[in-house]
């Protein structure tokens, strides 16, 4: 059992948890994730380690409640426990001093990008962050990012906060403004990551995305998390989760993430039968 020592909402349906897991806190590196199972009949789901404290022996995860399991998780409070939690999994992010790095987070993707942004800053990059959300409330971790990054640009689809528009428009604006960008990390809904890749490809800017396929074991055993990168099959849990954005087959990733749509609906109904699911899908998939 893994005890939750802190739990609080930081955005609509987005909850931050600090969980006791001293061994993972000690080992984990930016870009790695855990897999957890909330209860005996629970599903195993992957979540990025957003932060950790070796002093407290805790790891931080930030969860967007979009489906059955994430909503069960988000119903937990400080003092509750999680049945199973394994990690760190996956390869750590490749952290180098590229020069100027732009880190782009969309929705809960910001939480996934956060530890890597921090690590990029620590090795001397100039780090510019673009954090996108549907509206003001959906922009998360802005203050935390402000503390560690050189520049932070919130963007909202409805203009309620920061730049009015998509993260890619802000990125284009930076490029057009003459910012010499050496490296881009984009994490968020698949259409967003694809859009970023499309912006940086013609300019030959090294761009990395973090893929989020459906996983089971997270150790390379099941093959369920496979994706196509550079026309080859990769297992995201052991070969990734980060890959060269210009080589990822996003269409296939999108399709595969819908493999269990029918069943996911049933699960969600079970957990909560209110709140229109279409809403949530739109939220997860973000921009059109």
């Amino acid at each position: 059992m893994y005890k939750i020592v802190e739990a609080r909402f930081i955005g609509p349906e987005v909850k931050l948890f600090r969980i006791e897991a001293p061994k993972i806190a000690e080992k984990r590196k930016a870009g790695q994730f855990i897999i957890l199972r909330v209860h005996e009949n629970g599903e195993r789901i992957p979540l990025t380690i957003a932060d950790s404290s070796t002093k407290d022996g805790t790891i931080t995860i930030i969860v967007q409640g979009i489906g059955g399991t994430t909503q069960q998780l988000n119903a937990l409070e400080s003092g509750d426990s999680i049945l199973d939690l394994v990690g760190p999994l996956g390869k750590a992010s490749n952290i180098e001093n590229f020069g100027t790095a732009v880190v782009i987070g969309g929705g809960v993707g910001t939480a996934i990008a956060f530890p890597t942004a921090k690590a990029l800053k620590e090795v001397g990059n100039k780090v510019i962050t673009i954090v996108g959300g549907r509206s003001k409330d959906y922009v998360i971790l802005e203050n935390e990012l402000n503390e560690i990054c050189d520049e932070v640009y919130p963007t909202t689809d409805d203009g309620s906060h920061g730049f009015h528009g998509f993260v890619t428009q802000k990125l284009q604006e930076l490029i057009d403004g003459g910012e010499k960008i050496d490296f881009v990390l984009a994490i968020g809904p698949i259409p967003m990551m694809k859009a970023v890749a499309d912006v940086t490809r013609p300019l030959n800017i090294e761009t990395v995305v973090s893929l989020n396929p459906i996983m089971v074991d997270g150790t390379g055993m099941c093959g369920g998390c496979r994706a196509i990168v550079d026309n080859k099959t990769v297992f995201v849990c052991v070969d990734g989760p980060e890959f060269d954005a210009h080589k990822v087959d996003f269409k296939n990733l999108t399709n595969r993430n819908h493999m269990y749509s029918i069943q996911e609906n049933v699960s969600l109904e079970k957990v909560k039968d209110h709140k229109c699911r279409v809403d949530k899908l739109a939220e997860k998939e973000g921009m059109k």
Binding site: R44, G68, V216, D217, M221, I228, D249, N255, R256, E264
Partner: peptide
Amino acid sequence: ELNGVYAANDYLTRVNLMKAWDFPNSDTP
């Protein structure tokens, strides 16, 4: 890569370890 094509381990793990045969009592689809 099509949906519906499984590696045996994925299919078996879902059914055996994660009890997907008992969905939705078991959460794994």
